[in-house]
């Protein structure tokens, strides 16, 4: 059963310097309970695709359904079904962790007492309990990410969208986050749609990869299948595979750990 399916999903931005075709037509399906790695170089259109799938940005072409709700006809249904963590996160540094978690619960229309209870529950689950009364601005990078994810899990969404969740994290926090994502899928069956330009992350975490380049899907399949098909053998590195598919590296050389 596909929990997400898109057909020709496209977005063109009108700018002063003319139109920018950020996403030119994405066709993909995601199965329920799958961890999908949405992989592509910077500027490939990953964030734009995610913003469309979460109702933040109206598509200029194509269609999509998320958890059975049509993106254009039932945006409210899509919002109820999905959680979204933007690359920049989404908390006010001046506000305490507790207040942000409770407010988020209230934005999802939980009654006050339930929202407070849910905040405590999420804090336990994401190892934030000791930090509830700290200001969000005073958290470390890894703690901030866990809070961002806690916020997105407030309403126990069926689908969780994560935009470059580990960019800027130290190796320990990255490993912790991978564990967390796997745990969500294993315990709650949450479908996770995550973008990354780290190949090691895609390799380690994703059940299936969709590789985008210049706003279209360039290849898709399990990491092993892609390596076999494009890298020449199942032992090929994902780096070589990626190069073969897109003709260039996933990120500029100075960008961060690319592959291990």
């Amino acid at each position: 059963m596909a929990i997400i399916s898109t057909a020709g999903l496209a977005r063109t931005f009108r700018t002063r310097h003319g139109p920018v075709q950020a996403v030119r037509g994405i066709d993909l399906t995601v199965r329920e309970g799958e961890i999908l790695g949405f992989l592509g170089p910077n500027g490939a259109g990953k964030t734009t695709t995610l913003r469309m799938l979460t109702t933040l940005l109206p598509p200029t072409g194509g269609a999509a359904t998320v958890a059975g709700c049509d993106l254009a006809k039932d945006p409210a249904g899509v919002r109820r079904a999905c959680g979204y963590v933007a690359q920049s996160g989404g908390v006010d540094p001046q506000i305490t962790v507790r207040e942000e978690l409770v407010t988020q619960g209230r934005l999802y229309r939980l009654p006050k007492a339930v929202a407070a209870e849910r905040a405590g529950e999420l804090a336990r689950e994401l190892d934030l309990t000791g930090l509830l009364d700290r200001r969000c601005g005073a958290l470390s990078g890894g703690q901030r990410r866990r809070l961002d994810i806690a916020m997105a899990l407030t309403h126990r969404p069926k689908v969780l969208f994560l935009d470059e969740p580990t960019t800027g994290l130290d190796p320990g926090s990255r490993a912790g986050l991978w564990e967390l994502v796997r745990g969500l899928r294993d315990r709650y069956g949450t479908t996770v749609f995550l973008t990354t330009h780290y190949l090691d992350e895609a390799d380690a975490l994703a059940d299936r990869l969709v590789i985008v380049d210049r706003g279209v899907v360039a290849a898709e399949g399990t990491p092993a299948a892609l390596k076999l098909a494009y890298g020449g053998s199942a032992d090929a590195t994902l780096q070589d595979t990626f190069l073969a598919i897109t003709g260039r590296g996933p990120a500029p050389a100075d960008a961060a750990p690319v592959a291990v």
């Binding site: 979204y84 996160g89 989404g90 908390v91 934005l107 999802y108």
Partner: peptide, 16 residues
């Protein structure tokens, strides 16, 4: 400022 912090989009994905 809030757009930069992601607060605006975080609220806009909720049913609010």
């Amino acid at each position: 400022l809030e757009k930069g912090q992601g607060v605006v989009e975080r609220m806009r994905v909720t049913p609010v």
